[in-house]
Write a protein that binds this DNA or RNA. Structure first.
Lengths: 253, 253
DNA sequence: CGAGCTCTTGATTCTCGTCAAGAAGGGTGG
DNA sequence: CCACCCTTCTTGACGAGAATCAAGAGCTCG
C-alpha cells in the first residue's frame, strides 16, 4: 500500500510510452496521462474497466466545458493540451485557480455542483467519466481512492502556495513565481544554462491567475527583459536566462 | 457507501453530545469533534482503535505546534479552540491559509514535511495521531479514507474561494466575506435579526488571512461601523446588523 | 495602577489599476 | 504572397486604493 498522502507518480512526458503496457486499451497505450493520471495506479485489466466507463472528447481553444454552478455529473482527466480552472464574481471579475496539463484530474473540488468553471486554453483532449460510474469503480479499486486523496492533497499544497502569492507577493514576485511554476510543470526544454518555456496562455490568463491586470503583467515582463532575466520570442516563447535569479526574485522582490 | 466527494457531516455544536455513543471511549463521548471530525465515520469499536493510537494535548494561545518545513510525523484533530494555518516568506511576510475549529483535521496538505505552519489562536486542545499509526488505521477502516477525501475536497473548495478573494476582491469585499465566513463557521449566536459573532483572532491575524494590513482591516471595520452595518464590542465581539447587506458588499464592493 | 499589547486614526507614499493609443502578431481571403 | 483585420501585447499618463509611517487611545493583565 502506498503512502497516505502525496505519493504522486513522477511526470516524464518524454517517457510516457514506457508507462503504458501492451495489455492496456489501445487509446490508453498512447495516452500522455497514462503515467501520471489517476489511471496510473491501475493494472491493464483494471484500466480496461475504467476505459469502458469513459469517453474521449476534444474541444477547440477557448471552449468552456464546465460552467460554474452547474450539476456535477462528470469528472475529467486532461490527456492533451492545457485547461484553466476559474471562479468568478457576478460583475465578471475572474480568478484562475489553476492550469491543468495532461494527467490533471478535474473534479476534486465539487459538491453536487461544480464550484468552479473550466475552459480550454489550447485544443484539448479529455477523458470523461460519469460521476456515478467512477464512484462504482473507486469502490471496486480502492487504490483509485488513495490516488485521488494524494491528488487532492497535492492540489491543496499548490492552493496554499497560490494564496501566499496572491495575498503577500508583489507583482514582480508573482510573475517570477509563475515562470518557475511553469518550468516545474515541464512544458519546457532545458538547454544547458538557459531554459526555453512555452506559455500556452495569454497575458489575460496570466493576469487572472496572478491577481493582476494585463498591463501589469506586460510591464513586469518588459522590465525582466530589460534586466536581462528573460528573453521573449514569437508564439509565447520565453527564455529564462537565470533560473537562480528568478528564484531569488520570487521570494524577495 | 457514501458519496465520493464532499459528503461531510453537518456541524451541530449544540448537539455534539448526540453524536457520541455510550460505547465510545470516555474522552470521545464529550468531544466537540465527535460529530464532525474524521472520527465521525467510526463506530464505537473502531473509535476505540483510533483512540488508542492518539493522545490528547493542550497548548496556550500563540503556541506554534507545527513548524513549516519540519518532518510531518503526526496529524491533528482540533477538539477545542481555534488554530491558524499559515505559510510564510523568508522576510517574514505571512499568509494565513485558514483557521481551524473543532473537528478540523490538520495534515491534509503534507508531503514528507509540513508545507505549512500551525499556531494556536486561543487555548487549544488537539487529538494527535502518529502518521504511521493513522495510516495503518486508514487501511483497516476504508471509510476513514473516504472521509479524508471528502475533507480534502471541501478544503479545496474553501481554498478556491480564498484565491478569488485574495486575487480579485477589494478590502471592503474581503472583510465582508470574512465576516460571512465566520458566521458560517458558527462561532456565533443568532438572535432574530442581528447576529453576534465572537472573533477569537486579532486584527493582525485577520489581515494576514485577507492579504491586507492591520490598518486597512481596522479602517474597513470602522467604516462599516459608521455605515451602521456592524457594531463592535469588548473582547472582539461583533454584531452583524444586516447579513443581507454584508452579502451584497462581499460581492460588489 | 502601570506596562505592554492591540486597536484606531491621520498624513503621506507608492504600487498597481485604469484609461488610452499604438505596435506587433496571427489568421484569412483575395 | 501580400493586404487587411482582429486579437494580443506593449507603453505611457494619470489616478485610486492600500501600504507605510507615526502617534495616540483603549484594553488586559500582572
Amino acid at each position: 500500500m502506498t503512502s497516505l498522502f502525496s505519493e504522486r507518480p513522477a511526470i516524464f512526458p518524454e517517457n510516457c510510452f514506457f508507462a503504458a503496457e501492451g495489455g492496456d486499451p489501445p487509446v490508453c497505450q498512447i495516452c500522455r496521462a497514462r503515467g501520471s493520471g489517476v489511471c496510473s495506479v491501475l493494472s491493464p485489466e483494471e484500466l480496461s474497466a475504467l476505459y469502458q466507463v469513459s469517453e474521449r472528447i476534444s474541444f477547440p481553444p477557448g471552449h468552456i466545458f464546465i460552467e460554474e454552478g452547474t450539476d456535477a455529473w462528470c469528472f475529467y482527466n486532461v490527456t492533451q493540451g492545457t485547461v484553466k480552472l476559474f471562479r468568478s464574481l457576478p460583475d465578471g471579475r475572474r480568478q484562475i485557480t489553476g492550469f491543468g496539463s495532461p494527467g490533471c484530474f478535474i473534479g476534486l473540488a465539487v459538491t453536487e455542483t461544480y464550484g468552479f468553471g473550466a475552459e480550454t486554453v489550447e485544443a484539448v483532449t479529455l477523458c470523461r467519466f460519469s460521476r456515478k460510474k467512477l464512484e462504482t469503480l473507486v469502490n471496486r479499486f480502492p487504490q483509485l481512492e488513495r490516488r485521488l486523496l494524494n491528488e487532492a492533497s497535492h492540489e491543496l499544497v499548490l492552493a496554499q502556495d497560490q494564496m501566499l502569492l496572491l495575498g503577500r507577493k508583489t507583482a514582480r514576485e508573482r510573475v517570477a513565481s509563475f515562470l518557475l511554476t511553469r518550468i516545474a510543470a515541464d512544458d519546457c526544454e532545458h538547454t544547458q544554462d538557459s531554459i526555453v518555456l512555452h506559455l500556452p496562455m495569454t497575458r489575460a490568463d496570466i493576469a487572472d491567475y496572478l491577481g493582476l491586470t494585463i498591463e501589469t503583467v506586460s510591464r513586469t515582463l518588459s522590465r525582466m527583459r530589460q534586466d536581462g532575466l528573460i528573453r521573449t520570442g514569437a508564439d509565447r516563447m520565453i527564455e529564462i536566462r537565470s533560473r537562480e535569479r528568478l528564484r531569488t526574485l520570487s521570494l524577495e522582490g
